[in-house]
Design a protein around this nucleic acid. Structure first.
Length: 850
RNA sequence: GCGGGCGUGGCGGAAUUGGUAGACGCGCUGGAUUUAGGUUCCAGUGGGCUAGCCCGUGAAGGUUCGAGUCCUUUCGCCCGCACCA
């Protein structure tokens, strides 16, 4: 019998070290490919090894670990792997700064991080560890590139790209955030370069459609992806370039894209972007040329940051040339304007000042006419022009464009139709244009192809060879991997492009001397499929076997930061679909449920950063309190998806609870009677109530775990610990039910163990006498029937206001409920007329009386 | 401008389908233990007053026997995208 004096002290460090050693030596968390249990794949976004782990990692992995451990107890075969996104620029920078090879720096950091992961007690299957900078991993990225090359999904093209002058490399569109480099914050320059791309646009429609089925993803992430893909329905319309006389159409057509073909009768000018080759050609040698060149130059000087914002003043130059409006036959002056983008749509726009705010502002700036072609029913113009097909009113006096729905006026045969996005007028005009070969219905995406080449050393080499005779030739599969050389002297500024032992080779097609491509792939290519490699991490014939991937995929629970809402999560969806089309897997969405955990801020709500000096390192909590307290605090302070401010008091509170629960379990264990089965009918009233609470709170805790709502799961266990400790305190030892004590102790330990695993194992073995791991133990079963009490307190309302309470049998009939309720508030019903009585069994009775 | 989300005590936050608002914890107040501090334990803790009633989930309406929850309007905040035609 344990009393206060014999309960061992809670020594977190000793307990945690002990169990970490046992789990490791017993392979407790190995995922078995041949298990008959249903699978669950729990995954946290793998870290970049830039040093030790920080609080954000600790939170991310604690959430995943609690899920993984609970899933195991719930009978799943759990795959819970970890790895490192190990290529990237910080390693190169460190190499240059400290003179250490990038690889050595990276591997040392990974070792540090693994130590911390183990110290936190995360239940990873370390046998499946993946490091993206290992040749055994990255060669399969090269393999995938070659497969995509064969399918036409990888290609080389020359176009204006974002060049980061500080990182000395190009960036993908997705990596330019708010007009700045996602990593270093520099403003990228536009450069015309030959670069390598993956054709993610081939999957634009499928990537968009797939979002609808991602029920387990947060709305905001789905919204961001939809936004990024940016589908627009509209029409392409061909405008004939006019001869130099400005009125005679030539054979040369310039096509525009518009979502509002219904407004074509309101077009009064035609727009090209400053970078347009056509614009340069049109003005060459004309009086407009110098003004055009000046505009072009000024646009190049303005950064893309400053070019943003709809309030910006618009600049333009008239080229002196015209196109012909295909429906009205009227000539339209061609202007070059700085608000037109070269790489969206067709790079040419019809200017409709009446229906588009930007065009409106442009027209006002340059004195171009703004004829009304759309009006709402309550607009006087509507009455005046609803039947007028010809242009009668050539100018409006509005102060902004009318871009809402309205009825077409002065619009030829389409006058009177309802116009707007997806309107009858749009359909009618597209049909009219199509029949005459002047235009066609089309869909535009904002999504661009994924620019994957980087002019950096520490990355996965693109497995291509350039031969002067044969062009770009793929490295044969049997020559993979293209190894990244380790002998480069980064400190001296040497690059792959200058390192002859790497780039000198022969052409696989003709055998003549040729040069390897010295660009490496964007690190996001490495992180786009690591979750597939975990399924079969040591395969040396394929990136993964189909059997293994089909067994484990999709990832059931994916946990990580919101910062990857577009980049990583979109690329991974794309990669998965490519693998599916290669016949490598059956599934076509990699992540079933996505949880974006909130940030850990400092005590004042500020972002933790080294430069601010407000970083709370995980070790500062582990050392005084232990990993279990840290895990408990992280999960209890706030719901997983919300930001929280680091709170030293709350951590101390978590430690207080874990110690109290420790004492309570030992106290219960001291009264336990392992030999006897729990006999519920024989329990006395106090014991029966504890039994009922165990079932009630156990059910709540289980449901909260299933929803990933750890803060309330913990609060349910806290309530149970409160009740149990009161029981031990109030009931004399000889009157406690030993079997009940054993059961309650066991269930408290089991329910808290996904969160405080070392604490759980120690109590399970030392206080409760178990011999096998707690994680081979099934999650406790609770019974909804046993959670009910025989009597229940109901609320008695009069006209919806609480006026009294009554104890009734839980299975009381409506009539009994009414009688009990009336008795409880009899005094307040005197002289009143009861109109109606509503009864809600087990909850309340509402008496409507006046 | 477009899209997503959120407003509940001093604080973090609870509240399946509309059914006792504020679970659980932090903090605070009082008490016990203690030489003291800390620890632990007990009691209390939304606001108001005339002390058993009134008011209370950003605000105002509505539906309902009954609204934090549903509907309408409105205010405030956060996040993402944005000269995308």
């Amino acid at each position: 019998m344990a009393d206060e004096k014999t309960i061992p002290a809670y020594d977190a460090e000793a307990i945690e070290t002990k169990w970490q050693r046992i789990w490791e030596s017993e392979d407790t968390f190995k995922a078995r490919d041949d298990s008959a249990r249903p699978k669950k794949y729990v995954l946290e976004m793998f870290p970049y090894p830039s040093g030790d782990l920080h609080m954000g990692h600790a939170r991310n992995y604690t959430i995943g670990d609690a899920m993984a451990r609970q899933a195991r107890m719930r009978g799943f075969e759990v795959l819970h792997p970890m790895g490192f996104d190990a290529f990237g620029l910080p390693a190169e920078n460190a190499a240059i700064k400290h003179g250490v090879p990038a690889g050595a720096w990276t591997y040392a950091n990974m070792d540090t991080a693994i130590k911390t992961m183990k110290r936190m007690g995360f239940s990873y299957d370390y046998d499946r560890l993946v490091r993206t900078c290992d040749p055994e991993y990255y060669m399969w990225g090269q393999w995938a590139f070659l497969k995509m090359w064969e399918k036409g999904l990888a290609y080389r093209a020359t176009s204006p790209v974002n060049w980061c002058p500080s990182c000395n490399t190009v960036l993908a569109n997705e990596q330019v955030v708010d007009g700045r480099c996602w990593r270093c914050g520099s403003v990228p320059e536009k450069r015309e370069l030959s670069q390598w791309y993956l054709k993610i646009t081939d999957y634009a429609q499928e990537l968009l459609d797939g979002i609808d089925a991602l029920d387990g993803w947060p709305e905001r992430v789905k919204a961001m992806q939809r936004n990024w893909i940016g589908r627009s329905e509209g029409a392409e319309i061909d405008f004939a370039l006019a001869d130099e006389d400005g009125v005679t159409p030539t054979d040369r057509l310039i096509t525009v894209f518009t979502t509002r073909p219904d407004t074509i009768y309101g077009t009064t000018f035609f727009l090209l972007p400053p970078e347009s080759a056509l614009a340069a050609e049109l003005v060459a040698g004309t009086p407009a040329e110098s003004a055009y060149l000046e505009l072009k130059r000024s646009v190049e000087q303005v950064s893309s940051v400053d070019r943003q914002g709809s309030g910006r003043e618009k600049h333009g130059v008239f080229t002196g040339r015209y196109v012909i409006n295909p429906l009205t036959g009227r000539p339209l002056p061609i202007w070059v304007a700085d608000y037109i983008l070269l790489d969206y749509g067709t790079g040419a726009v019809m200017g409709v000042p009446c229906g588009d705010q930007r065009d409106f502002e442009f027209a006002r700036t340059f004195g171009l006419p703004i004829p009304p072609i759309i009006a709402q029913r309550d607009d006087p113009l509507y009455e005046q022009l609803k039947d007028v097909q010809d242009m009668v009113v050539a100018e409006v006096d509005w102060d902004h464009a009318m871009d809402a729905e309205g009825y077409l006026i002065q619009s030829g045969p389409f006058t009177g139709l309802l116009g707007g996005k997806h309107s009858p007028a749009v359909d009618a005009i597209i049909e009219y244009l199509s029949e005459r070969g002047l235009g066609r219905k089309t869909v535009q995406f904002r999504l661009r192809d994924w620019l994957i080449s980087r002019q950096r050393y520490w990355g996965n080499p693109i497995p291509m060879i350039h031969c002067d005779c044969c062009g770009d030739v793929p490295v044969p599969y049997d020559q993979l991997p293209v190894l990244l050389p380790e002998a480069l002297d980064l400190g001296a500024g040497e690059t792959l492009a200058e390192y002859a032992p790497f780039y000198e080779t022969t052409c696989p097609a003709c055998g003549r001397p040729a040069r390897r491509i010295t660009d490496t792939m964007d690190t996001f290519t490495c992180s786009s499929w690591y979750y597939l490699r975990y399924c079969d991490p040591r395969n040396d014939e394929l990136p993964f076997s189909k059997d293994a991937a089909d067994r484990w995929m999709p990832v059931d629970n994916y946990i990580g930061g919101i910062e990857h809402a577009i980049l990583h999560l979109l690329y991974s969806r794309f990669w998965t679909k490519v693998m599916r089309d290669l016949g490598m897997i059956d599934c076509d969405e990699p992540f079933e449920n996505l949880l974006c955990q909130g940030m850990v801020k400092d005590a004042n709500g500020g972002t933790m950063s080294k430069s601010r000096g407000n970083v709370v390192p995980p070790s500062s909590v582990i050392e005084p309190y232990g990993a279990d307290t840290m895990r408990l605090a992280i999960l209890f302070i706030a719901p997983t998806e919300k930001d929280f401010n680091w709170d030293e008091e709350a951590v101390a509170g978590a430690n207080r609870f874990i110690k109290r629960a420790w004492r309570t379990v030992w106290g219960l264990a001291g009264s336990a009677d392992g030999a006897r089965e729990l006999d519920v009918p024989s329990l006395d009233a106090v014991s029966a109530e504890l039994w009922r609470r165990l079932n009630e709170l156990g059910l709540k805790c289980t449901a909260d775990f299933d929803r990933g709502q750890f803060n309330t799961a913990i609060s349910a266990v806290m309530e149970l610990v409160n009740d149990a400790s009161k029981y031990v305190q109030d009931v004399p030892a000889e009157r406690r039910d030993g079997a009940l004590c054993a059961r309650v102790a066991h269930d408290i330990v089991a329910m808290l163990s996904p969160i405080c695993p070392h604490w759980g194992e120690e109590l399970f073995h030392e206080a409760l006498g178990a011999t096998a791991s707690l994680y081979d133990e099934p999650w406790p079963a609770f019974d909804a029937e046993q959670a009910k009490s025989s009597m229940v307190e109901i609320v008695v309302q009069i006209k919806g206001k609480v006026r009294g309470r009554a104890m009734v049998a839980v299975d009381a009939t409506d009539g009994e409920l009414e009688e009990a309720a009336k008795a409880a508030v009899a005094a307040q019903l005197v002289g009143k007329d009861i109109k109606k009585i509503i009864t809600v069994p087990g909850r309340l009775v509402n008496i409507v009386a006046v």
